[in-house]
């Protein structure tokens, strides 16, 4: 009898060990490609990265040297413009969701934000093509900003809602007890309290949009020269990376790796910053 129980127990311990091994193995597998991509981006990209990369525009194929200044500046301009377009809508939707919990629109708003959040990015590009590129008669940085703006609105809405719902209700009650109207409570008390979190959300939306190339293929389109006029086609880093990666030139492949490393560094930095900011609770 006790021998049997002993065996059963030993069997359970073996299952325990086996599952631990499987879980550990699965975890390693899940992160394997991320590590490989990072390692390659670091080793391949670091070789092609120098000061010229940031300070000079790209050269025609076959000519060595040059950089990707036009793409870096373009990324910041198109993405920044898109953020400006998206901010009022995203913030307002987030405030409505968090501060007016009994509003009849909210269930639909939340569902639509989540759905838009999961929409393929290229569809926002198609929408911007139909709404901006077609009426204006050509590709432009502005249409790219619209595509990225569309993409950022639902992200901003959900992150704003999440951050505002973390603000203790005593903050609101204190304001209301002083006789402040509700809009003053929200604008002067709730939003400033949540500032760090709001900025984090904005930063993450900006970073997410900065890495997108698919919605820009037929909106911002790309340009080999520095372009500051948003009514003309503009270049961005992911767009240029894509074009270089499928080109046949060795030098451009190196530049693509460097662009990947820069993008990756930017995104790691924003994620770290976001983590650091969100650790400081209210």
């Amino acid at each position: 009898m006790s021998r049997e129980r002993d065996l059963a127990l030993r069997r359970r311990y073996w299952v325990e060990r086996l599952m631990l091994a499987l879980v550990a193995l699965g975890t390693l597998l899940a992160f394997l490609v991320l590590f490989l991509v990072l390692a390659y981006a670091l080793f391949q990209g670091a070789g092609a990265l120098n000061l010229d990369f940031f300070l000079k525009d790209m050269r025609p194929p076959g000519e060595a040297g040059g950089g990707l200044r036009q793409a870096i500046v373009g990324t910041l301009l198109v993405d920044g413009l898109g953020l400006l377009l998206a901010l009022p809508f995203g913030l307002a939707a987030g405030i409505l969701l968090a501060e007016y919990p009994d509003h009849p629109l909210n269930p639909y708003l939340r569902l639509l934000s989540d759905t838009l959040n999961g929409m393929p990015a290229i569809l926002f590009g198609l929408l911007a093509f139909i709404l901006v590129v077609k009426p204006m008669g050509g590709f432009s940085g502005l249409s790219g900003a619209f595509a990225l703006g569309f993409l950022m609105i639902p992200i901003l809405a959900r992150s704003t809602e999440g951050v505002l719902s973390l603000v203790p209700k005593e903050v609101r009650e204190a304001g209301l007890a002083l006789g402040l109207p509700r809009w003053r409570v929200i604008l002067s008390l709730v939003l400033p309290t949540a500032r760090a979190g709001l900025i984090t959300g904005i930063l993450l939306a900006f970073a997410r949009a900065a890495g997108e190339a698919a919605p820009l293929l037929f909106t911002a389109f790309g340009s080999p020269l520095l372009e500051l006029n948003p009514l003309k086609p503009m270049d961005t880093l992911p767009l240029r990376l894509f074009a270089f990666a499928i080109s046949p030139y060795e030098d451009w492949h190196q530049k693509a790796w460097a662009a990947g490393l820069v993008l990756f560094g930017f995104i790691t930095l924003t994620s770290l910053l976001a983590r650091w900011a969100s650790r400081r609770r209210f």
Binding site: A213, L263, F264
Partner: peptide, 9 residues
């Protein structure tokens, strides 16, 4: 957060 194009590369 790693951009799609970097995976593609």
């Amino acid at each position: 957060a790693v951009p799609s194009v970097v995976y593609g590369l």
